[in-house]
Structures are given as C-alpha cells and as structure tokens.
Design a protein around this nucleic acid. Structure first.
Lengths: 158, 158
DNA sequence: CAACTAGCTCAAGTTAGCTTGAGGTCAAGC
DNA sequence: GCTTGACCTCAAGCTAACTTGAGCTAGTTG
C-alpha cells in the first residue's frame, strides 16, 4: 500500500480506486468540470490529493439526491486547494440538510393524501388529492431522479 | 363538452386530453402494456372509458415515485374492465403508502447523518457516515465502500 | 525488443420516459 | 375532389450519468 504524501499527485487509476468510482467516471467528472487535473509530459492525468475530498463530496451529494449540476454549485463554494473550514462545511451541510428536509416534507404530504384516499374510498377520481394534484408533492421531471437516487443509495433489496 | 356514456369508446385524442397527457404518451403507455385498445376498421385506436382510471392510477403512481414497471405491477392487481372495489383500491393504496413511508424513513436517516456531520465537524472524512470514502476504500478490494456503508447505515429493513 | 499495464481520445451504447419528425391514411366538410 | 384534422407507423432525439469499445500511446519489466 503506497504512502501518499500530502501534496502528492495521484494517477487516475489510484484516484478512482480510492474514491470508489470507475476510471471513466473520473474522466467524466473532469469533463463536467467537477474536478481538475494536470498532465504529465506523456499526457496522463494527475490529480491533486484533495480531489479525493471533492469526489467524496460528489458521492455525498448524490446520496442527498442532488444532480451533478447542483453538486457542482456546492463545490464552487468550497476551496479547490485546501480543506474546507468548519464554517464552509457547515454552510454546505446545512443547505443539503434543508434540501433533504424539504423532500421529506413533500413525501409526508403525499403520504397524508394517500392515507386520506385509502380511508375515504374516493374511487370516483373526482375529489381525491392524489388523483387531482396540486403541486405540493409533485415530483420533478421524468422519473423523479432524486427518489431513485435515494433508493439506490440506500440499497433497495426489493 | 361531449357526453360520454359508461361504455363509450374514446379516440386517443379525447382520452389524452381528458387524462392530461399527450397523445404520444398514451401510445407509449399502450406499447408498455399499461393500457389496451381496440381498433376501428380504419385502424384507429379506441379506448374503453375505464382507461381513464388506469391513466389516473399511472399519474398517481408517478407522484408516489414509482416507475412504470412498478405501476404496471400495481395495475395488474386491478380489474381491467370495471371499477376497483373498495378492497382492491385499499390494498393498492396501502402498498403505496408503505413505499412512501419507507422512502421517508430512508431520507430521515440520511438527514440524521447529515446533521451529525454538520455538528461533529468531521472534515477529516475519516469517520463520517455520509462521507466515508477515500483511503479506507483503497484497502478493500474494488467496489465502493461508502455505498455499502450507506446501505448498512440506513438499514435494509424498516 | 517484446509484452504488459495504465493511460489516452473519441464515439457509441444504456435506461427511463418520453418528445419530435417524416411520411402516409382516413373521414368529414365545402 | 380537395383540404383539413385526427390518426397511423416507424425512427430518431433528448437528459442524466455513466459504461463500453475501438484503436492508439507511454512507461516499465524481463
């Protein structure tokens, strides 16, 4: 197991292995602007060690249910070249916690509708909240990504 | 607004308008097996009126966060040719409520992790549940360790 | 010097849930 | 009998977040 000094530059394979993602994924993230690399004279990528932290933030953000876009925005507020301060980290974490809290609220409203529907036997489709949506709990876009993310991240055994 | 008799057959445009989806979407749903149609001698689709209910269930299921696959499974338990009984509807609604409840639980656990992280200032990335990638992953074969941790942390059962 | 491993680029494929477009048909109205 | 509108099929495109594959290079080892 190689020792990695604080300022060491990591080749892509090492980075990917340590971050728990695939090599193409690392390249994809770089292409999307989430991380950056230098190159060797032989054109190989070298990543500063703190890229590990950024990749950890990406993984955490995905678990929260954020898109890469949103994660990128969060990363933009974080220092690229040093560890974040307690204050910086708290700020990001707090925002993410709010996001999660909001999603929980939406689901709770949905759950209430559902319970109401079950109780009231609203088979007419006429006045059921669930069947006649306002936008309280509307899931965003096709496939409701964040729900599916939550599922994947928590391991749905089925 | 045309009067629709109980057993009337609806052309696709009418159905789509009433269900609040696009015509191609209706065709797509039929292709996926969520609904069925007859054809006129001129090869045009005609949908039985109860298809409206099925489409309403599809929309509701999407709001719950289900995939079309999962919705199809739910529809399989519902009568294709008549209104569901109170009992049938209750059964489906109860299952969906359980799904929503489980997702809420998952998110609540995630929220707890997040709050914990914010509070503990775990900037080392060393022992945070949410945030546990990095060097430890390197010591364990391939495959993302934090994902497995997440799984364990959120619990596979309710 | 050949083999091997790690890396490179560019392009295409994957899944979900649709949308968009091209080109053709059918029935009604003027 | 020609236009209009609703409908048809089939194929391709879209977004997100990747994966997979083809074909090439770079550096190390025997």
């Amino acid at each position: 197991m190689p020792h990695i000094a604080p300022n060491e530059l990591l080749p892509i394979g090492e980075l990917a292995r340590r971050a728990g993602v695939s090599v193409p994924t690392v390249r994809y993230y770089e292409e999307r602007g989430l991380i950056r690399s230098e190159r060797t004279p032989g054109n190989k990528r070298l990543f500063p060690r703190h890229t590990l932290r950024r990749l950890a933030v990406v993984a955490a953000g995905q678990r929260v249910g954020l898109t890469l876009q949103e994660i990128m925005a969060a990363l933009a507020d974080m220092p690229a070249d040093r560890a974040p301060t307690q204050r910086e980290w708290t700020r990001m974490g707090t925002r993410w916690a709010q996001t999660v809290a909001q999603r929980i609220r939406q689901l709770e409203i949905l759950q209430t509708s559902l319970d109401g529907c079950i109780g009231c036997g609203c088979l007419s489709l006429g006045k059921c909240v669930l069947f006649n949506p306002g936008d309280e709990a509307a899931t965003e876009g096709p496939g409701s990504r964040w729900l599916r993310n939550a599922e994947a991240a928590t391991g749905s055994q089925g």
